[in-house]
């Protein structure tokens, strides 16, 4: 297929990392243009009209045929112009869980010309249409199903235009170089806790031990589920709202999510771990994630959660 030739685009788009900010500007080295099916039908109609003109020796029919043929030729320029000079910038896609739809953001910037009916998609069968005003930009999100964990690289991206007459199709294949991080699909299940962590399993029995100055992290806003013992009543009486004294992780009370302690095949183990990472993070519990070859934590918080999920997503993959 013609579209396979992707010359001129590759060097600027190393597939390795998202070279998004630089973007790519569509020019003649990467735009292809051929008559569409409608255009071919139009050509056949023109041929018939030309035959009629020849056989009836009618110059008005000739004029009409030639005028439409010229419109066809000028249409080539218009269709090409609709695409040429368009800038595409690939953004970094957000991470997601397996089984979801990865969303790859693409930003379109036009130069001095307005663009009409630009079609974007992974294949010619599934395209989204967008208009772009002159000097304007639009953000487009293209989704792709993410069946399994790991890096999900964005396939090459098709940018297409048939405007104005639909007789020509101009297109460009672009390697956006994006990849989305796909976490394992969380799978609920029981967690065999590693030895030594059992005693801190239930929430209510937990001691607010070590209420020392060193572990005091500061105040944070109250969230439903926080222990009432740790509410800062003084602050509340001063009208600063419900605040909770935040304490640093308490040694010995963390969960250990150990890959090797689980049964089952690798993927379901990872799914289970993923579920627990989310669950414990939700409950603000510190935990350790133990994977063969790496150990994360003990820690809690958003950053730790992200790091754990990332490790789970990329486990066993050469990132």
């Amino acid at each position: 297929m013609l579209a396979e030739s992707l010359k001129g685009v590759r060097p600027r788009w190393p597939g390795r990392i998202v070279r998004a900010a630089g973007g790519v500007r569509l020019d003649r080295s990467c735009i292809f243009i051929v008559p569409s099916r409608v255009g071919l039908a139009f050509g056949v109609a023109l041929l018939l009209m030309l035959l009629a003109a020849i056989n009836y020796r009618n110059n008005l029919a000739y004029v009409l045929t030639f005028l439409l043929g010229s419109v066809f030729m000028v249409g080539v320029l218009h269709t090409y112009r609709n695409l040429a000079g368009l800038r595409l910038q690939a953004g970094a896609p957000a991470a997601l869980f397996a089984g979801g739809q990865a969303r790859f953001p693409i930003r379109l910037d036009s130069d001095g010309r307005a663009r009409q009916a630009l079609a974007l998609g992974w294949s010619s069968g599934d395209l989204q249409l967008h208009d772009l005003p002159a000097e304007g930009s639009a953000s487009v999100e293209l989704s792709l199903p993410a069946p399994r964990r790991g890096w999900l690289p964005a396939p090459r991206l098709r940018v297409e235009s048939r405007f104005p007459l639909g007789l020509m199709v101009a297109w460009s294949w672009i390697d956006p170089g994006q990849r989305a991080l796909v976490y394992p699909q969380p799978l609920a299940g029981d967690l065999p806790l590693s030895a030594g962590a059992q005693e801190a399993a239930e929430d209510e029995g937990r001691q607010a031990c070590g209420e020392g100055v060193d572990d005091y992290q500061g105040l944070r806003a109250y969230r439903p589920g926080d222990s009432k013992r740790r509410l800062d009543w003084k602050a509340y009486s001063r009208g600063r709202g419900l605040l909770v004294k935040d304490f640093a992780a308490l040694e010995g009370s963390e969960f250990c999510l150990d890959f090797s302690a689980l049964a089952g095949d690798g993927e379901s183990r990872l799914s289970l771990l993923c579920h627990w990472v989310l669950d414990l993070s939700e409950r603000q519990r510190p935990f350790v994630l133990q994977l063969p070859g790496q150990r994360l934590g003990p820690n809690s918080g958003e950053a730790h959660r992200e790091a754990c999920l990332r490790a789970l997503a990329l486990y066993g993959e050469a990132s």
Binding site: A20, A21, Q89, G91, A92, P93, A94, P105, R107, S139
Partner: peptide, 12 residues
């Protein structure tokens, strides 16, 4: 502007 727009459009 390119710098500023990048901070506004890039997801990180």
């Amino acid at each position: 502007l390119r710098l500023v727009e990048a901070t506004r459009s890039q997801p990180q």
